[in-house]
Design a protein around this nucleic acid. Structure first.
Lengths: 240, 240
DNA sequence: CGACCTGTTGATGTCCCTCAAAGGGGGTGG
DNA sequence: CCACCCCCTTTGAGGGACATCAACAGGTCG
């Protein structure tokens, strides 16, 4: 297709800031093709020299960091609209491993053209920085959760965040949002053991159901109370 | 003084990428004065409308997030060269409270001029994004620490990171680096209780001493082993 | 001198980890 | 078509790491 960005479905979602005509033209030329991943495939490995960065177009994945003792931390989920790979911008070395949890499509950008982006399209460069700032903000919230919340509160917090983020990109289907991960992934995201994660999920079953890769929240109010957060939509943000 | 950036001591440190002549000129004009803080003063409060962002020139501080239950999370320390306030770029609302742990000097930038920076100085805009990516990378490491490391490992990890970061900005003084925080701050940074933090610090006394606001590391190798990290210098990064 | 803050140490409790085992699909092969 | 296995989920039992409660020492300040 000639105009992959022009027809991009993500761009139309209200959570993303609109593109100008010239921005659409620029991105169409700037992008470096698409990447298609199957379930379980890795986008990049920890330690890889990263020549690209990516925007998630569809599907879901996660970035993991592995420790010498066998531990594994899920640093963040990769949802449609998320940018990943920028971290490796500096060291050239990826600090995490990105894996697809279901079939994914990503928009690819070449790192060597980054200076050109900054020279040629200030508004797109601004968007890039903005997205990085959004991500930074979210990681700060995650740190707060890991540092201060109990297991039950962490689960409640995560389910709410995940649900609202996926709803914001139009994935709600009445019966819930697709969330194709295992309990082990959620456990690794929250610094909990698999067993305890399972037990806390059971205790929240009245407020949220997560089965067969579909997450449904029935008592958001209660979850928010448990998690000590306010119920709010994800803020509007740019898309790359 | 006419050339505050030209004479900036930070710029000369090898951990920071060099400025071109034109970049120095640009920043001199772009900056919006200095902010001087006394110990305990706050740079901004959670919920504030943020019109500025800042680079730490000297001194140290931290960003905190407070929870309804009285909990407090130290999201990150603010060391010389660090950029802060960008997170609030989007919501306009600061998500954390920034407090000085000793007298601080910061370089101030006006948010409304950000688009101008992207239009006028692509190389500076690139540096800004780079710094944000560095920060994002570090927050990811912190998440891994909070999620996967034990109390002793967290303390060892934090002491190493803090020491190497402060050394990289030239604060080592033979007997150690200045670190003007309380054990309560470190506890809040690592998601531990004050009491337990104290006990773990005691157990590491042979490897690291932290007294009277000075941190000295005598057995970095041992600490690194405990923390499950490699001993390495902080990567070179831009300065704003 | 007393009030307050920070650091230190001991005692007690508990949240969560680890170990263990069983049940339910889904896939493969006999 | 059933046997078998693997992965995921679920539940119970026991133990350990860390939180909470409590008390004291030293330093600083009013």
């Amino acid at each position: 297709m000639m105009h992959p960005c022009k027809s991009c479905a993500l761009r139309k979602m209200s959570i993303f800031l609109p593109f100008s005509e010239s921005e659409v033209r620029f991105m169409t030329e700037f992008r470096d093709g698409e990447v298609h991943l199957e379930t379980g495939q890795t986008l990049y490995h920890e330690g890889d020299d990263l020549n690209f960065f990516y925007t998630v177009l569809s599907g879901q994945g996660a970035r993991y960091k592995f420790l010498p003792n066998g531990g594994r931390q899920l640093v963040n989920f990769l949802f449609p609209g998320d940018l990943t790979g920028l971290q490796g911008l500096l060291e050239g070395q990826a600090s995490t491993t990105a894996v697809a949890a279901c079939p994914m499509v990503l928009c690819r950008f070449r790192k060597t053209r980054l200076p050109e982006l900054f020279r040629t399209s200030p508004s797109r460069a601004y968007a890039l920085t903005w997205v990085a700032a959004v991500e930074e903000h979210f990681l700060g919230e995650t740190i707060t959760t890991l540092g201060q919340r109990t297991a039950l509160q962490r689960i409640a917090w995560a389910l709410l965040k995940i649900h609202s983020r996926l709803t914001a990109v139009g994935l709600a289907r009445g019966h819930g949002v697709p969330f194709p991960f295992r309990q082990r992934d959620l456990a690794d995201a929250l610094g909990l053991s698999l067993v305890h994660t399972n037990k806390m999920l059971a205790r929240l079953r009245n407020q949220a159901q997560w089965e067969d890769g579909v997450l449904r929240i029935t008592e958001a109010r209660v979850l928010a109370e448990i998690a000590m957060v306010d119920l709010e939509e994800p803020p509007v943000r740019p898309l790359l």
